[in-house]
Design a protein around this nucleic acid. Structure first.
Lengths: 220, 220
DNA sequence: AGTCTAGTTGACCGGTCGGTAAACTGGAAG
DNA sequence: CTTCCAGTTTACCGACCGGTCAACTAGACT
């Protein structure tokens, strides 16, 4: 990354440290002292740049979302490929990301946004709404991908891209929970193809109407 | 003289308090002092019955699983109904449960097992494996339900009940994450019908009925 | 009676939590 | 030079954390 430069680096170092630690563990389980230690910064500096631990995490989520869009969402969901290939690329990208973290840290962390919601969603409204904004943005990528599929005739014209994008996100969140239970990236590859069933592109070539029994057979 | 007629009730009171508090908030965010206060018990008693906070939570999960089986899984998934009706009943039961908690406490908690996995799955192996056991048991109910559907001819004979049960669980976990993001039980009813699509009973399986769009929600 | 014991109690422990305050640094601007 | 100030450092705070301990209580058994 940019650790070579000596520039106003403490803020970035804090963001990186918070991301690495909270992502692989949890919001409550990681303290400010540990974040500062990892960042090589004293605690006073943390509260110079951020008004609270929550404020730091909020800024961390913004940066994380930008990275996630650039590394996963845009490369896999945009381009000339058909929608089936895009879904496959998306699953592969998620798997590659989680597997990389698992390889380097020993942890399979799951979805950082989903993690925060599940942990703090009930008692921290600010955090919850911030995460909701980011998840809506992720779903927006799905929706645009689906809409392109509809426009190209790869999906039925009556498909509800908005509703299907929400389901896409829901299943992906659930798959990441299951992968976290197993602590095994392979779970993502095992369950990911079910997205085809959910979205309705399970067959090799999409007919306008649903196949009588092909949907259930093509899973896993 | 004791106003209570039951026996060694402190243990049960602690289990109930831990369930209510940790379920609606989180493992790390709820302290032993608060659990004891809610249970009307001094902290020493907690450590008379349980060796640690984690031990208490483990026992609480066992009791919770028993309640969940009796209140949701068995009533909705067993009986003479066809598989489509069972899925609907299951979604309704989950919704009723979450909506009741939401009404009474103001929180929509999501899945207690999934919550714990997401929060502590990476750094607490004991908790993770305990939750995994419970989730496997839930998936076992799904699998038996699916197998019955296969035996009755409601599902294709080549259906993989084990793999499909895992997907059922994954989608349900994801739906509960989405409901927690929204803090709205209606999300469960909106996304729940997608289980039909995933399992493959969304099509016009009943020739007599004519569902316009509401029952299956197949392509939405 | 006396003893035993499961259960209860309140005081207490060391450690860590998020957060604060004041003093300090070094480079840019006047 | 002096002034200024974003950024850094150190020491520190009160609150809370999970957990411990010895003393105590009351019912059951002998």
């Amino acid at each position: 990354m940019d650790t070579q430069k000596n520039q106003p680096d403490s803020r970035t170092a804090l963001l990186h440290a918070a991301r690495d630690l909270i992502f692989t563990r949890s919001f409550e389980h990681v303290g400010t002292a540990e974040i500062c230690e990892r960042a090589g910064v004293r605690k006073g500096s943390l509260y110079h740049f951020f008004s609270s631990k929550e404020d730091l995490v909020l800024a961390m989520l913004d940066a994380l979302m930008d990275d996630f869009e650039g590394a996963v969402l845009v490369p896999s969901l945009e381009g000339p490929n058909c929608i089936r290939e895009r879904i496959d690329a998306f699953v592969q990208a998620i798997h590659a990301f989680e597997a990389a973290v698992h390889r380097e840290s020993g942890y399979l962390p799951g979805c950082p946004f989903g993690n925060l919601i599940v942990e703090a969603g009930t008692y921290n409204p600010g955090l919850r709404q911030a995460v909701k904004r980011h998840l809506d943005r992720v779903a927006g990528h799905f929706q645009r991908c689906l809409q392109e599929g509809i426009d190209r005739g790869e999906l039925p014209a009556h498909t509800d891209a908005l509703a299907l994008a929400e389901l896409w996100l829901a299943l992906m969140e659930g798959i990441l929970v299951m992968a976290k239970v197993d602590q095994d990236p392979a779970t993502i590859l095992r369950l990911g193809p079910a997205l085809h069933v959910l979205i309705g592109v399970s067959g090799p070539h999409t007919t306008s109407e649903d196949p009588p029994e092909g949907a259930a057979g093509g899973n896993t």
